[in-house]
Design a protein around this nucleic acid. Structure first.
Length: 879
RNA sequence: GGAGGCAUAGCUCAGCCGGUUAGAGUGCUUGCUUGACAUGCAAGAGGUCACUGGUUCGAUUCCAGUUGUCUCCACCA
């Protein structure tokens, strides 16, 4: 039944096969009826037409680690995947494609035909990202895969919208919003990012009406908006302009008369202390305008060109108009000066176009009442952020929340379920798909706008489990356990899921929010298309395997911190895979058993107890790390354990026993190493699912466990009876001495092939005895080992370590004087340590206040150093 | 303007609740075809844990400040 492992490790030969098998066996598909403790993760839905990038890979890896760990611990684990329709992103992509291939715009096709094309596009490319996720080994339940625009999610969206509207939490209003002149849609505040741009600060004189020669000087970074000015504001306490408040100014170029108003918003000391007010094109001006009942004059169309009625400026693009207006102002003598000025400009987070603030009719969610519960649930600790500091970012965002503009002038998305009667002007919000006017009975026209993509994403934790139906799954798996995501979408997604969960389900959507950082390139730059520095995870998988990618992404970075991805890291991970593979091959070459059973304690040799005890300790630590979301520490520990202890020492120590076929010691060794290797595979499985499964399948089974797959076997747990601290200590002494001997030999340039006699003087028969003598022969190039209480001839290399003194007679190679000097150096070092410890231990404060265990620890260290010192002194004295 | 992160070996980074002889990977030096692995083995060099104070018996670790650096939020026209 058992397969042999190929001589070389080739992930491409095993990964797809194992994944297909797991899917076929249904391991990813949990059943409610199986009961047990549920553990649920909902995948952050990637854009349906997107492609896998490193950010996804990290996200998926971390989630799969958690889910595989919990699954092996016996939880009823559901990891529910799906994709997001990604309104703007997808629509832009399809429109671009249409323009390039057929020269058509969406308006040429009309809404219905265009949407059909987008759906086809989704059908064609929607599975791409899903298949890419599978390459990573993600153990998602694909049978429950969802899409934010599928029937169920659409129903949830409609229900939520109507319910919030009925509660007065959704309203339609004419407000100032962020407008993207390229995407031709409104954006929420979260969808605007700011970048610093070099601009200018134009100072313009606005003449005071009826006072010839008197001007008010305003300064602006956006002169084109002056066309829409309806006032100039000054600070109420600014004496300079006090007499002008209430007077009228004549707007240059336009000729409109506008008032001077007093408003606290103005800062006296900035610029000239006079601010031109354009309520229709600036959010702050909009608020000033509301306070003073100013007219809102919109001067730009949706594509940011100047509207009709402004002479030669009309029809000009906003930047062309800016130039023209500045020219004219200069010509007509209104322009006072121009300064260079760097300022932040809002841009569309999708296309990068400079956003134009504009007044517009849009739909909003009233956030303040909703935020209340969402703040409470985090403050009370019912939802925990991991690392904790991200709760601050969240709370800051929620405490300063503004109403959420949810309407988008797009076609791809959830159409807002509001209906208008063109005859009587009535508006209805309804769950029905067609509505007749309650007054005139005429069929009403549905709102053409769609909802912000994040509206449906906000419902994801429960809409995917069947809500608004009261499904069994919803009852069992909700609230979900952990949400894993990058810190960059806390405002977009995390906060809104909490809001909606609390409002619609009256229950938190998840218990823990596990936040990770960004994956950057080797130089620490953000990976981006424009820089071309993105590393394609699929190429990495092809070259190194998914296990290597996962291990590289997960290892050694602390939660929430950005990480750099480099060739070195992935190569280190690949090499580790290779190491594991070869270690397993070695073990298999020496295993004749059909079943592994843990040997009785009394049959175990020192090295067996040592490795079992170490495995036990590592198991405990790894579980603790995983339980505390320290996903970067656990694999580093396993790496060290596997490589530096299991491979470098245990395997080497067993070689003589494996050579001794048929002996009892050999049998014990087979069972022990089998047991340890299975344990290692299980511990590593969440990180490296493929290689561990392949090796697990090749190994004999563990007695009492007949798991057909490692992924449904039980995760190791700390076992008291497998803790052997004394044997660990003994083994470590042996290792110390062997290392010290190797060190000496290397320093003296003695080739490993040259074997030498070895005398070991020690009182510790439990460490240095016949059984351990073979270690020295094998690992310290000893030709023969003699344990004794004293040696006659001390003209040898003397090595003090591990509680013993080793002598290697090297004849001519030994320069006694040099040896003495070297040992004297060591004496000095040890004396230093002793002095430090004695100082510490004579400190009354330390003795009185330090915990007893620490004091004991220091005393033990001192004793050890003192023993070493006396051995060193003895060695020198007898030379 | 507000908030937060980071600063430890040449490089990239770990170091959880204060007590370690301060670690790893990689790079570097030296020696090895050691019957699993050269994607390897063995040995070694390399750190004033940014700076200044404070708390403490004890600080790389906790606190405050300084400097450098990155990010997020706000958006003074």
């Amino acid at each position: 039944m058992r397969k042999e492992l190929e001589k070389t490790y080739d992930p491409s030969q095993i990964e797809d096969r194992l994944y297909a098998n797991w899917c076929e066996k249904g391991y990813f598909t949990p059943q409610v009826k199986n009961g047990g403790k549920p553990y649920t993760i909902v995948i952050p839905p990637p854009n349906v037409t997107g492609q896998l990038h490193m950010g996804h890979a990290l996200d998926e890896t971390l989630q799969d680690i958690l889910i595989r760990y919990k699954r092996m611990q016996g939880y009823n684990t559901l990891w529910l995947p799906g994709t997001d329709h990604a309104g703007i992103a997808t629509q832009i992509k399809v429109e671009e494609h249409l323009r390039k291939t057929e020269g058509l715009s969406r308006y040429d096709l009309g809404r219905e035909a265009f949407l059909e094309i987008v759906w086809n596009w989704k059908g064609q490319y929607g599975s791409r990202i899903i298949n890419q996720l599978k390459k990573l080994g993600s153990s998602c339940d694909w049978s429950r895969e969802r899409f934010t625009m599928d029937e169920g999610c659409s129903k949830a969206v409609k229900e939520t919208f109507c319910s919030l509207y009925e509660k007065g939490l959704i309203y339609r209003g004419y407000r100032i919003i962020n407008w993207c002149p390229n995407c031709l849609t409104a954006l929420s505040d979260a969808e605007v990012s700011y970048e610093e741009q070099k601009g200018a600060f134009w100072h313009i004189n606005y003449p005071v009406k009826g006072e010839e020669g008197r001007y008010l000087q305003v300064a602006t970074t956006r002169p084109e908006t002056m066309l829409g000015d309806t006032a100039v504001a000054v600070h109420p306490e600014d004496e300079r302009y006090a007499d002008l408040v209430g007077k009228m100014l004549v707007l240059p170029l336009v000729g409109r008369e506008i008032p001077v108003v007093a408003d606290e918003y103005v800062e006296k000391d900035f610029g000239t202390g006079c601010v031109k007010i354009t309520p229709a094109h600036d959010p702050n001006d909009f608020m000033v305008g509301e306070r003073h009942n100013l007219e809102q004059i919109k001067v730009m169309t949706d594509d940011a060109t100047i509207v009709e009625g402004y002479g030669r400026y009309s029809g000009m693009d906003r930047y062309t108009a800016r130039k023209a207006i500045v020219e004219d102002l200069k010509e007509q003598g209104y322009l006072v000066k121009v300064e260079d000025y760097a300022h932040n400009v809002g841009v569309c987070y999708r296309c990068g176009t400079t956003v134009e603030p504009m007044t517009s009719d849009q739909w909003f969610v009233k956030m303040e009442p909703l935020a209340k519960k969402a703040i409470e649930v985090v403050e009370k600790g019912e939802i925990r952020f991991e690392p904790e500091r991200f709760s601050k970012i969240y709370l800051h965002w929620m405490n300063n929340i503004r109403d959420w503009c949810i309407s988008r002038q797009l076609w791809w998305g959830h159409r807002i379920p509001a209906f208008y009667c063109d005859d009587c002007g009535k508006m209805e919000v309804s769950r029905e798909s067609s509505v007749n006017c309650p007054c005139c009975g005429k069929e009403m026209r549905q709102e053409s706008d769609v909802l912000d993509t994040w509206f449906s994403s906000a419902l994801w934790p429960f809409s995917t489990l069947g809500w608004p139906e009261k499904t069994e799954e919803l009852g069992y798996y909700y609230p979900t356990s952990t949400l894993v995501t990058g810190y960059d979408i806390i405002p977009f997604w995390v906060s809104r899921m909490i809001v909606m969960g609390m409002e619609m389900m009256n229950e938190r959507p998840f218990e823990t929010v596990f936040i990770h950082g960004l994956v950057r390139d080797a130089q620490g730059r953000k990976m981006s298309k424009s820089l071309g520095n993105g590393i394609d995870p699929l190429e990495i998988i092809d070259k190194y395997g998914a296990d290597a990618l996962r291990f590289a992404l997960a290892t050694g970075n602390s939660p929430g911190n950005d990480m750099r991805f480099s060739d070195e890291k992935i190569e280190a991970a690949r090499n580790f895979n290779n190491k594991i593979w070869n270690a397993a091959r070695f073990v298999l070459m020496n295993l004749e058993l059909e079943e592994i059973a843990l040997p009785a304690t009394e049959d175990l040799e020192i090295e067996d107890k040592w490795i079992l005890s170490r495995l036990n300790t590592v198991t405990k630590e790894v579980c603790e790390n995983l339980d505390h979301y320290e996903l970067g520490i656990a694999p580093a520990k396993l790496y060290d354990f596997v490589w530096s202890e299991f491979c470098d020492w245990y395997i080497e120590l067993l070689k003589p026993r494996f050579a001794d076929k048929g002996s009892k010691s050999n049998l014990v060794a087979q069972n022990t190493i089998g047991y340890v290797l299975i344990g290692i595979m299980k511990l590593l499985h969440p990180y490296m699912p493929f290689i561990t499964e392949e090796i697990f399948a090749s190994l004999p089974t563990l007695k009492g466990e007949d798991a057909e797959s490692i992924m449904i076997s039980s995760y190791p747990a700390y076992t008291e009876s497998l803790s052997f601290p004394e044997d660990e200590e003994r083994m470590e002494k042996l290792i110390d001495l062997i290392r010290a001997i190797r060190n000496r030999r290397a320093e003296m340039n003695v080739p490993p092939s040259k074997k030498a006699q070895l005398y070991v003087v020690s009182e510790r028969g439990d460490v240095y005895n016949e059984k351990t003598a073979k270690f020295f022969e094998k690992l310290a190039s000893a030709s023969a080992v003699t344990y004794c209480s004293e040696v006659e001839d001390r003209s040898a290399v003397q090595i003090v370590a591990g509680g013993a003194t080793a002598f290697i007679p090297m004849g001519d190679l030994v320069d006694l004087e040099k040896e003495k000097a070297r040992l004297a150096g060591e004496v000095k070092k040890v004396q230093g340590e002793i002095a430090r410890l004695e100082g510490k231990l004579s400190n009354q404060g330390f003795l009185a206040k330090a915990p007893a265990a620490v004091v004991e620890g220091e005393k033990a260290k001192l004793a050890k150093y003192k023993e070493t010192l006396s051995q060193l002194e003895d060695a020198i004295a007898k030379m």
